[in-house]
Design a protein around this nucleic acid. Structure first.
Lengths: 78, 78
DNA sequence: GGACATTTGTGCGTATGTATT
DNA sequence: CAATACATACGCACAAATGTC
């Protein structure tokens, strides 16, 4: 699922995977996406890498992060 | 007691201290070990660091954690 | 039943250091 | 040098489980 040896940064690949899940309706608006720790588990990366993926998803306007609660699919991203 | 400047991670040092107390019989089987907050006080570290020490002790099979109650010396660890 | 304190679980924000490319 | 990635460590906020009163 993730290419550790390819030229594409891991955090970009992870963000693309999450975006695909939102596009596919696998992750729904106002619902939480995988937490940083869950991404660490699922993708086998460091927390900092998972955080960079979230940062990218926020920049794309796909998710909204609430401190102390988690990151959720943006309502505008259906 | 804890070397904040050395190369050994704080959570490893703390786990080692607790393990020594178990080995010495200072902490007895089925009895609670210091809570996370008590470790924060005693060792002057963040809660996350105390939690990583506990995680290590669980991996070593020395303690067992019960949600809402605390962490106890494993019966098998005398 | 309710209120409260204690303890662990979870999640994110931030900073620093190291290594590799 | 810059970007990527990992590890360590601090902090804050909230939830869940437990126990006591």
């Amino acid at each position: 699922m993730i290419d550790f040896d390819g030229p594409t940064p891991l955090y970009v690949q992870i963000a693309d995977v999450i975006e695909a899940r939102i596009r596919d309706g696998e992750l729904l608006p106002d619902r939480p996406i995988p937490s940083e720790n869950q991404m660490v588990q699922e993708f086998g990366v460091a927390r900092g890498t998972a955080r960079k993926a979230l940062e990218l998803l926020r920049a794309r306007g796909l998710v909204v992060t609430v401190v102390g609660r988690g990151t959720f699919v943006a309502r505008s991203a259906d």
